[in-house]
Design a protein around this nucleic acid. Structure first.
Length: 279
DNA sequence: CCGACGTCCTGCTAGC
DNA sequence: TGCTAGCAGGACGTCG
């Protein structure tokens, strides 16, 4: 569920609440996450102090002051929140870290268990894993990022969903960015001109920045690090708007299946590549 | 090598 | 009213 804006919001919420705090206790009621939580990690983590909370793509990284890291992915339904220790523990809460003093909890909840929480004692192993899985952050993409898909026979929607092309874009923001760039999700990477690729890069950055400004999108389960819902779903141009009028031209928003995901677009505003436009 | 598709899991809802 | 098929913000293994 959560894409870059939602993960960034969680990170910004948690950072001031976690940094400087110590882990007093850990209870893992369910270890069978996407990547299993190992029971022996608890003993290694107790007593450590939080140093920083940061994001890379859709991954949350928690650093400890004497080394070691937690790597968290929210999958589709993950929630990573700070709550009072007295707040009722919701079902599907898999891991609870009690913070020093015992008055607060850091909790990982994930209904579908597509998410994960892992401990990395060594920084090198963490960096290697992230480097292997992720391409550049959207803001680091060079103007010539077209090279990354210029020879691809995949459609632009599938390309945007590939975390090694650009890190952090998921199903919602891929659709929103393609609308903002006025490009069809079905257009092949190999049929995309330099100008179109630059427009798409700008659109991705613009859409993600606006979504972060609205604290991300809440469709169902997503909440930020302090339990607040997002607001960007109110500003969707195409996602989830099948049959509704395009905000720009009033024609009906269409929905097709692409790369195994529902894909929303405006058939009138989003045009195919002009003949001969691609070199 | 590349791209398409099924699978992991639970909950909700549209449609019969 | 009640049941069930299908779908949901992600990622990865397998297959052709």
């Amino acid at each position: 569920m959560p894409e870059l804006p939602e993960v960034e919001t969680v990170v910004r919420d948690l950072r001031p609440l976690l940094v400087g705090k110590q882990i007093a206790h850990i209870r893992a009621s369910r270890a069978a996450l996407r990547r299993p939580w190992r029971r022996d990690w608890a003993g290694q983590l107790i007593g450590r102090c939080f140093k920083e909370v940061r994001r890379r793509g859709k991954w949350i990284i928690v650093d400890f002051d004497r080394g070691g890291h937690l790597l968290v992915h929210l999958g589709m339904t993950g929630q990573f929140t700070i709550q009072h220790a007295t707040a009722p523990i919701q079902n599907h809460t898999h891991i609870v870290w009690t913070l020093g003093g015992g008055r607060e909890h850091l909790r990982f909840r994930d209904i579908r268990r597509f998410g994960s929480v892992e401990f990395f004692p060594q920084t090198a192993a963490l960096d290697a894993l992230l480097d292997e899985k992720l391409g550049p952050e959207p803001w680091q993409l060079p103007r010539g990022w077209r090279r990354r898909f210029a020879h691809s026979q995949r459609c632009l929607k599938a390309i945007l969903l590939d975390q090694r092309v650009v890190a952090g874009v998921g199903n919602i923001y891929a659709d929103e960015a393609l609308f903002a760039a006025r490009l069809l999700p079905t257009q092949l990477g190999s049929q995309t001109s330099t100008a179109q690729a630059q427009r798409l890069r700008q659109a991705v950055i613009c859409v993600l920045e606006r979504a972060i400004g609205a604290r991300g999108s809440t469709i169902r389960n997503y909440v930020g690090g302090s339990g607040l819902r997002g607001g960007f779903q109110e500003e969707f141009a195409v996602y989830g708007r099948l049959g509704q009028p395009c905000r720009r031209c009033r024609s009906a928003i269409a929905c097709i299946r692409l790369a195994g995901r529902s894909t929303h677009y405006c058939p009138k505003c989003q045009r195919p590549a002009a003949l001969g436009e691609v070199s």
